[in-house]
Design a protein around this nucleic acid. Structure first.
Length: 329
DNA sequence: AGGCTGTACTG
DNA sequence: CAGTAC
DNA sequence: GCCT
């Protein structure tokens, strides 16, 4: 995947330093500094702007007008996933993503049904939430001990539905049980160690701090390196589950030799505290998964992904890693 | 009825 | 190969 | 779960 002809190079002129300035606001000025062909962007029909997230100004934080709805559906999605009902969970997840991006509060079953990814069954559920504020199905599916325990166990990084079920069968119920009696893989030991931190959301301000930290380290190794956070941060979310950092270099070559030095530098300063997957090699693109912590008191441990790509793949990679996952399909 | 991305790592 | 994660 |  990610076949990315280097022809795309001309498309990404604005990515140098300071991507923070791009996430800001969509008022005024920004328009005329872009490519001339898009000058009339502000005149896009309203329907278009509402239908396609990519047709909306990308500044501003994304508002979730339907948080009360997605929050309920998330509970069911998590429960189904824990019960290995993978595809049902996927359907939920897709619908949740679509609803989250919907630009105004949903007020009827009909309106829900008009959203791609939301079918009759989910539209019914949306309607129930709109009317009563909650879903009876949630109590039915989520509030038994097994479901709760499975979901608790799946919060351990590296433990999925099968592992969680296995632990449940063995009689384990608490994280304490896992620590004492469970035999955990290396990943799961790390996942358990930082359970609370890893499962808490990261304020986007902190994501920006992490980005700056990584960028400084990168520039200490090679000037001109581009360091950009993708994922939910770049989609404008107020909080993020982890930090996806994309690294490249405009000279088209320096990315090849920067991966190890960068990781080593981040280790020396104590920023990287644990490695999960140290070298996923996807063609010429490399990925690191680990745990980091900003310097100073009271900082939490955060999940960090670092992806290094050749410059000619920068634009498609940025899109891919910005997601969301469902947008990519 | 049948697909829902494709790939790499770990054990 | 199964499980997990991206 | 949804979509084709």
């Amino acid at each position: 995947m990610l076949y990315s002809p280097c022809k795309l190079r001309h498309l990404q002129k604005d990515t140098d330093e300071k991507n923070t300035s791009r996430e800001d606001d969509d008022t005024s000025a920004e328009d005329n500094t872009r490519e001339g062909s898009f000058k009339k962007r502000k005149f896009l029909p309203k329907e278009l702007k509402e239908k396609f997230a990519c047709a909306r100004p990308s500044g501003k934080q994304v508002k979730d007008f339907n948080h009360h709805i997605t929050a309920e559906l998330e509970k069911l999605a998590a429960a189904y996933k824990s019960k290995k009902d993978t595809w049902r969970a996927l359907g939920y997840q897709k619908a949740i993503s679509a609803i989250r991006n919907y630009p105004r509060p949903i007020t009827s079953r009909e309106e829900a049904l008009s959203i791609r990814g939301v079918g009759g069954r989910l539209a019914d559920k949306v309607a129930e939430i709109v009317e009563s504020g909650k879903l009876r199905k949630v109590a039915e599916v989520c509030e038994d001990e097994e479901a709760q325990t499975l979901q608790r166990f799946m919060g351990v990084w590296g433990a999925g539905p099968t592992t969680a079920h296995g632990w449940y069968i063995q009689g384990y119920r608490t994280l304490e049980d896992l620590r004492e009696k469970g035999n955990l893989t290396r990943h799961q030991q790390i996942g358990l160690k930082y359970y609370d931190d890893i499962n808490s959301r990261i304020p986007r301000e902190e994501v920006a701090e992490i980005e700056n930290y990584v960028r400084s380290a990168a520039h200490g190794i090679k000037k001109g390196l581009i360091v950009m956070v993708c994922g939910s941060y770049r989609r404008g979310r107020a909080t993020c589950g982890d930090v996806d950092v994309l690294v490249t270099h405009p000279d088209g070559q320096s990315h090849e030799t920067v991966f190890q030095p960068l990781l080593n530098k981040l280790r020396e300063t104590g920023f990287l505290t644990d490695d999960l997957v140290t070298q996923e090699d996807n063609g010429n693109q490399k990925k690191y998964l680990g745990v980091c912590k900003l310097p100073g008191e009271g900082q939490k441990y955060r999940r960090l992904d670092v992806i290094v790509v050749p410059y000619c793949e920068f634009a498609p990679a940025a899109m891919y890693f910005t997601g969301s996952a469902h947008f990519n399909r």
